[in-house]
Design a protein around this nucleic acid. Sequence first.
RNA 1: GGGCGUUUAGCUCAGUGGUAGAGCGUCUCGUUUACACCGAGAAGGUCCAAGGUUCAAUCCCUUGAACGCCCACCA
Length: 752
Amino acid sequence: MDTFPNGAYLPQKVEGAIYKRWEASGFFNPDKLPPLRSTGVSRGKAGKQKELFSIIMPPPNANGALHIGHALFVTLQDIMTRFERMRGRVALWLPGADHAGIETEFVYRKKLEKEGKRWSDFSREELYSQIFEFTQKNKVVMENQLRKLGASCDWSREKFTLDADIVGKVEDSFVQMYQDGLIYRGRRIINWSVKDQTALSDLEIKYEERNDPLYFIKYGPLELATVRPETKFGDTAVAVNPKDKRYREFVGQMIDIETVLGPAKISVIADAAVDPEFGTGVVKVTPAHDAADFEIALRHNLEIKQVIDKYGRMNERAGPYQGMKVEEARKKVVEDMQAKGLVTKIDESYKHSVAVSARSGGIIEPMVIPQWFVKMTDKGNTKTSLRDLGVKAIKSKQIEFIPKRFEKVFYHWMSGLRDWNISRQISWGIRIPAWFCANFLRDEGAARELSARQSSGRAREGCPPIVSKEAPLQCPACGDHNLIQDPDVLDTWFSSGQWPFLALGYPDGKDFKEFYPTSVMETGWDIFFFWVARMIMLGMYRTGKVPFKKVYLHGLVRDQDRQKMSKSKGNVIDPLGVAELYGTDAVRMSLVVGNTPGNDPIISEDKIRGYRNFANKIWNASRFVLIHLEDTEPNAKKAKLTKHDKKLLKDLDGLTKQVSQDMEAFKFHHAAETLYHYFWHTFADTIIESAKPRLQSDDEKDREAAKILIYTILKTSLILLHPFMPYVTEAIWEHLPVKEKRLLMIEPWPRH
RNA sequence: GGGCGUUUAGCUCAGUGGUAGAGCGUCUCGUUUACACCGAGAAGGUCCAAGGUUCAAUCCCUUGAACGCCCACCA
């Protein structure tokens, strides 16, 4: 028994070697799984149909170390995979890593800053290769961390979102969607992040409540309220509600107004979007810098006049205020208007929401800049309406959410879908496969001076963009040879939204044909819209099938005070650190027990310690059993089981059944807790205790019965516990006196 | 302004139309040779509130409260 030392279980001494043995066995690879021993039939053959299980790992961002949230998904997905493998399925868990465009670019910017270098010191190509190297290094670190956490994924199939074949397929999708009219180059109001110097999608911004003064300003005969007087240079109308009797006489008129730049004329329009209750019921319309105003401009064909530039400074239209930052200009404009007596009132108590970049916190300036958009809805065309495709996938029950309530969340979000801006003005990512000729660029530049309706509706005067995977030699319309590729890159979620089928080798790959649609997608609810909803829509569009049959959504790991863990708060639990300290199994158990789908789990070091104790309990109870076996399996023929023994073994079957049902129903928290309680308080505290005197009995048959009893229960318990606590169970399994023993990871799950 | 969720023991959470559950914590006892990362035992709950359905409600329905979250073109 020297390989099975006394005393405490020391995970640090066994985990590394065990993972190596698993990996070397090849059993992570579904192609290399051996037949099931119990039946002798080949794995996965139930009837003639192979029973497959597949799960695609949400690729972690290759820009840093894994955090506790990653440990949570590893635990849940590994539990599923190990369970399915043991019950005989051809189980594939496909790992990957994400280049994570904008996030990685920001991380790398900070890294450069720390090193005293500047982003602008490098060419685009230099930066790209530097960041590529950076992600490759991180990827290796992450892979080893995933190993440490016990992930039984098939490393031979690992994919990176920038692998050449993946990039090619993403470009194919772009081209296809362009041809289908699902992707278009559009001139619409977008979220411009001044700080980040890129456009962001609606999901990448958040709203912060601010207290800004509301200025009441004279506009000739009218008076209106605004928080942004500095944008008045971009006003192209004044709007009132069509039902508002107060202003009826002005609608359709040009009114004379006095401004800080002198007298001017502006038209008054009526639009239902104006709330007569707000302020004076009159609103200035600034289509270039306000999303609502842009919509109004579309309805009334107003001119779009940009007055703020990409750096958040006033442009030439602002006259004397040109070059000032927005905040500064606001102050000056108000002062000058006050001097002219144009400000009638200032409401200092006004509260409203301001859009900021969710990532950097920088202010969002709505602007009209040409971008690439994915059309989310297509009236009447259910084949190309991404929204219709997505809704259909859920309505038809081809996809089931766990927990179910996310169905409602999904429909709700889908109902309000707006077109998705997928171009980012950054370097790191998949470059947009579109080329522009001089004519195109001239035309797009000129379009800035056109009205909303003109620029969106008119036939192009210039050439269209050339959307193609390969660089074209010349513009087919004008013959220009000096084509430049669109400098922008794709939103990361555009590529990761296609991950399930891309990672499996769509459209011709063997894995794609075999494993798609995948069995389950397991991820956090925080990226439900970003990722899950888009995978569903893009999967349906591109492959005609759902990307997965079930979606299991876990929550955000929080600390004892329910706070989100973050480095700045200093409340993070480093999963690798605690795994080293208390053992991986303890960390995994603490992440799964008491954690129901869709809810945020709370984890503390105390909880982890509790399961460290449990691992130790398993270790020692096993040691006790093995000491009494003296290295041989107990002989059933010699044993005389009592009625009570038989009842206990029947209870064990009940446990197996209960746990199996829980696993199949994705109630991992319940299965884990049931096993914990059974092993410790039923098996160790009661059954082993009462077996002690019998193990000393003079009656050989009674002695043998006691051995059979505790050995049988131990064996079954180890199997059932293995998906949850793979290391300690495998470590003990090595010492069991089983003939022709193989790894516990492929031991058949008991019948139930 | 819409929508979603939560509310059960001191803490973290399960759970069921039929006498309320676990872990941790607390208290008492125990130096039993697998384990002190242990064992035996105990205390501790109007299951958020009110009303309804029912023979019976913590669970189903209605209304409300508190807390949390998501969505939204709040000038």
